[in-house]
Nucleic acid binder design. Sequence first.
DNA 1: TATTGTTATACTCTATAACTATA
DNA 2: TATAGTTATAGAGTATAACAATA
Lengths: 145, 145
Amino acid sequence: MNDVKLTSTLAFRLGTLGAIATDRFSARLAPHDLKPKHVGLLSVLASGAAASQLDIAKLMGVAPSLVVSLADHLEAMGAVRRLRDPADRRRQTLTLTDEGSALLTECTTAACELDTELTAGLTPTQLDALHEALGHLAAEHGLPA
Amino acid sequence: MNDVKLTSTLAFRLGTLGAIATDRFSARLAPHDLKPKHVGLLSVLASGAAASQLDIAKLMGVAPSLVVSLADHLEAMGAVRRLRDPADRRRQTLTLTDEGSALLTECTTAACELDTELTAGLTPTQLDALHEALGHLAAEHGLPA
DNA sequence: TATTGTTATACTCTATAACTATA
DNA sequence: TATAGTTATAGAGTATAACAATA
């Protein structure tokens, strides 16, 4: 007989804690008029991993049309610039502005503060172990370092 | 200067890995015609933590109207029964049927299989540490044991 | 009047499909 | 004809608000 509880599985806990983390991160981003995916896009640009909108969509695992609206919003805020690739005028190359870089830094700080809040009850050893385990999982599942 | 990357924060990793876990869990539930929240409701009933729809809504952190539609679906499948509380005929008491119990067991098995798949690359030590850390976080954030 | 459950409606997020410009 | 980006449309998921029955 199987008396494992659904709520103690990793799948359930990752899902529920992930939803909590995303909700709280969203709340902290709201004053900046950003959502988590906007910040994810800024982060892709900062890493240099992709620049054309289609490549960004593939990397983020979202539809190209979503990148359009994320980029529209970020461009209107002055956080990114769109530049036509002269070699292939179909491509839009996105680049971070100084303002976009500063914004990403602020959002990263917000995420760090949230980390502190979320993990206040863990011992330093538990916290290290959590970082290590999630880092491994992220790498295995193709998420950025 | 701050060179912490957004993508290495716990908030970001919990959010993204949580989304992956939920997506994959959803895919495994689809053949049963269930979504994660349906299974969450079954799990609440099995734990005995709440029975009236309003209490369930509070416990799950969702709108009462959502519990109505989750319960409608589960009732139509024969997984739960609605019983009017004779002492207060406004209250609908939800109870798991045998079929609902069996369904919850199957879904829990699916979650365990998913755990194995998701964490295949972790050492046993890392896996234990992850369970422990997420268990602590879940308890602190008011999630069921 | 207050509360439980329900129904009606609207909003957010995101994908798919149709379209434009360039190759 | 194929591809990058854009626009238009549609669907899933969930909340809010209005409503009905009971207290």
